[in-house]
């Protein structure tokens, strides 16, 4: 979980405190989001999670170990039903989680390399302007329209994420959504 201190620090850094309430409910038409995952060892991840928390999302810190997070927080939830998860992590962590997400038949519908600002794979339905700002990316994912996930999944292939040469350490923002979204 992101601490209140981290939230306040990040929000202050992004100039958000004056404009954003402490919790902003997701829009009615946005994709139901179970959780936002970040790696707290990376500053952009903390900023991403802080912004997501302001938008009302539950957040979880992988602390570098995606397996522990999967077992602790995702496996049981996904066994009940498929539900979307977003994140900003090193690519290597997405790589493992993406394969585990195949079991509840989630699709990777958004993949964005933070450093370059490039959007990869099945994210073509995203029309919003993208930047390398993690807070802006968090706002985009927390408000992702449910109908866009359906469109994106039609264009999605799990394999398409492999069509881009990430290094293990590349910080990527991502969204995985259920087939039936």
């Amino acid at each position: 979980m992101v601490t209140r201190r981290q939230v306040l620090q990040a929000a202050a850094g992004a100039g958000l405190i004056a404009t954003a309430p402490h919790s902003i409910a997701q829009r009615n038409d946005s994709l139901p989001l179970h959780r936002v995952v970040f790696d707290g060892r990376h500053e952009p991840g903390v900023r991403f999670a802080a912004e997501a928390a302001l938008w009302g999302a539950e957040t979880s810190d992988t602390r570098g170990d995606i397996a522990a997070l999967y077992v602790r927080e995702l496996m049981t939830r996904w066994r009940k039903s498929a539900i979307a998860v977003a994140g900003l992590t090193p690519y290597s962590q997405l790589f493992g989680l993406r394969l585990m997400a195949e079991t509840p038949r989630l699709r990777l519908v958004f993949l964005h390399e933070l450093k370059s600002g490039d959007v990869y794979g099945p994210a073509n339905v995203c029309r919003a302007p993208l930047s390398t700002d993690p807070a802006a990316t968090a706002r985009l994912l927390c408000g992702w329209p449910a109908h866009s996930a359906t469109v994106a999944r039609r264009e999605s292939s799990i394999l398409s994420a492999q069509d881009h040469p990430f290094t293990n350490d590349a910080l990527v923002a991502w969204l995985m959504a259920p087939v039936s979204a």
Binding site: D65, Y70, P90, S92, G96, M100, Q162, F166, N168
Partner: peptide, 18 residues
């Protein structure tokens, strides 16, 4: 103690596709 670290290690190295 199994985990997904193997996945992380084996993730694309930036030059290959598996």
């Amino acid at each position: 103690m199994p985990n997904l670290w193997g996945f992380q290690r084996l993730a694309n190295q930036g030059v290959n596709r598996g």
